[in-house]
Amino acid sequence: MDTLTPAEISARLAVLRQEHRALDEQILHMAANGDDELDAKRLKRRKLQLKDCIAKLEDMLIPDEPA
């Protein structure tokens, strides 16, 4: 993953952020309709994984500062 160009990282971030927003909407919809709680937990877990991945990619875009 360290060999990605900044443009590739930015593109990947856009995709992950879109999926994160879609999951958020789906979770809210499930909660409003009283859908299966286990499915909602799975979606929330996936949303957290996406958040972690987004954070890692964002860190890759920040250049290292010399000590």
Rank of each mutant, 00 (worst) to 15 (best):
M1E: 09
M1T: 07
M1Y: 08
D2T: 12
D2F: 06
D2S: 14
D2V: 07
T3S: 11
T3A: 09
T3V: 08
L4V: 01
L4C: 01
L4T: 00
L4A: 03
T5D: 03
T5M: 01
T5F: 03
P6N: 05
P6G: 01
A7H: 10
E8C: 08
E8K: 11
E8W: 04
I9H: 02
S10W: 05
S10R: 15
A11M: 09
A11V: 06
A11Y: 07
R12Y: 02
L13S: 03
L13Y: 02
L13C: 04
A14S: 09
V15R: 11
V15D: 08
V15E: 09
V15Q: 11
L16F: 04
R17W: 00
R17M: 03
R17C: 00
R17Q: 06
R17I: 00
Q18S: 12
Q18D: 11
E19T: 08
E19H: 09
E19F: 06
E19D: 09
H20Y: 13
R21M: 13
R21E: 06
A22Y: 06
A22H: 12
L23S: 00
L23N: 03
E25H: 11
Q26G: 00
Q26K: 15
Q26L: 11
I27V: 14
I27R: 02
I27Q: 01
I27W: 00
H29E: 14
H29T: 12
M30R: 06
M30E: 08
M30C: 05
A31V: 12
A31R: 15
A31F: 05
A32I: 07
A32R: 15
A32F: 04
N33D: 07
N33T: 07
N33S: 12
N33L: 09
G34H: 02
G34A: 03
G34P: 00
G34T: 03
D35F: 10
D36N: 15
E37Y: 11
E37N: 09
L38E: 13
L38N: 13
L38K: 15
L38A: 15
D39W: 07
D39M: 08
A40S: 13
A40D: 07
K41S: 10
L43V: 04
K44E: 06
K44T: 10
R45H: 13
R46C: 01
R46A: 00
R46L: 07
K47A: 00
L48Q: 13
L48R: 11
Q49K: 12
Q49P: 02
L50F: 01
L50S: 00
L50G: 01
L50Y: 01
K51H: 11
K51N: 07
K51W: 02
C53E: 14
C53L: 12
C53P: 01
I54E: 01
I54A: 04
A55R: 14
A55T: 14
K56I: 05
L57E: 02
L57A: 00
E58D: 15
E58A: 15
D59W: 07
M60S: 02
M60L: 13
L61G: 10
L61T: 03
I62M: 09
I62E: 06
P63N: 02
P63F: 02
D64G: 06
D64Q: 13
D64N: 09
D64P: 03
E65H: 14
P66A: 05
A67T: 07
A67L: 11
A67Q: 05
A67D: 07
A67F: 07
